[in-house]
Nucleic acid binder design. Structure first.
Lengths: 202, 202
DNA sequence: TGTACATCAGTGAACGCGCGTTCACTGATGTAC
DNA sequence: TGTACATCAGTGAACGCGCGTTCACTGATGTAC
């Protein structure tokens, strides 16, 4: 039967949050509407009261995934290198490699998003920029080109986790994470302690 | 009707080669047996004379993809840094970002291979090690830990291309490739010219 | 404020298509003698 | 070497299941008066 506006809005949020996790964990083709709705405690028939299509849900779910993920970077006070340090440290953790459903959306479904339509693709572009922005803000203190440093850092992080997950071997996973912590841009960030400012480069 | 052993073997190779390209381009769930067979100039019914299942084809196709890709690294004389330099240069090219079907299998389907069975997953582990081996061989001349340097390099490369493809924006793609060429490990390789030896690190 | 009616969130059955897989069939290949 | 028969690569139809999507229905919510 009909639900109040508040309940309806809550239901919608639940669907998006559930999809956000399941899409990352199983891939866009690896999970169906019925399963997502069931996990959210609903039946599949009601899905189209909330979303126009599966692709529309993908776009919203990935938007939320990026928001949640970027939040990890902004929650601490802005421009503080400590927020980046703890972000990088968590990104390169064994837990992040294991818990795909709560991790970085790029590492989780990055290679699948090429097969999506233009709306969902745009979400990834915006999501990447939203990650780069706070990274750039912080790294501009320690690098002459903060944006470039942010791009370098993000590439190393994404590559490490994609490789670690693809390798599917605990020993190699640990080796990869370990090695990437030594990349100059990464190490530069990880070396900083709370409240410290990076020295200008060069 | 029945075909000669030679023709049969040739057909099988064609199927694997076609699948190797199409899986990278469209993803494992984005292309079907019938489409692969049709692209190979066959009808789908004959597929199971060659392979036990789609997953079996995935395993073989990815094995071939890794072999082809690794070949780029070994073709020049072994242990020569120039082979690594040209490999890295091509890896970080706009062409590689565009031509997914002929590119690195990790960057192409890396985030999808988590959803495969153990056989296909093993192919990725072996494939990664097969890439690391020649990289390590070369980098051990310029780094105190060649394997670690190889892991760092590969992570940066994979991350750059995954990010560039996910961004789906020509300008950002170029920015990413540009930035990653500046990562110390990458730049170290790219700086070398033909026949030169890297100086030991530290 | 109360009443009558329209709206619509959620249910569960059903539709239709695509895809992995199977099968009967064909006729050339391969083999046993 | 030649002949008879078994094998099997490839074809095209068909099966069956899953999944995205639609729909009739229910009954509480929201709204018009």
């Amino acid at each position: 039967m009909r639900r109040s506006k508040e309940v309806t809005a809550e239901t919608r949020k639940t669907i998006v949050a559930t999809a956000s996790r399941l899409f990352r964990e199983k891939g866009f083709d690896g999970i169906g509407i019925a399963d997502i709705m069931a996990t959210a405690g609903l039946t599949h028939g009601g899905f189209y009261r909330h979303f126009a299509s599966k692709e529309a849900l993908i776009a919203e779910a990935m938007t939320e995934a990026f928001e949640d993920h970027t939040k990890q970077l902004k929650s601490e006070d802005d421009g503080d290198i400590e927020s980046v340090r703890s972000y990088v440290s968590r990104y390169l953790s064994a837990a992040h490699v294991t818990k795909v459903s709560q991790g970085c959306p790029i590492a989780a479904v990055g290679s699948e998003c090429q097969h999506l339509g233009p709306v969902a693709t745009g979400v990834f572009f915006k999501g990447i920029e939203s990650l780069l922005k706070p990274l750039t803000n912080v790294l501009r203190h320690s690098s002459k080109d903060g944006r470039k440093a942010a791009l370098r850092l993000l590439s190393s992080l994404v590559g490490a986790v994609v490789l670690a997950r693809a390798s599917n071997n605990t020993k190699l996973q640990a080796e990869i994470l370990d090695a990437v912590r030594d990349i100059e841009d990464v190490a530069n960030v990880l070396r900083r302690t709370r409240g410290s400012r990076a020295k200008p480069k060069g």
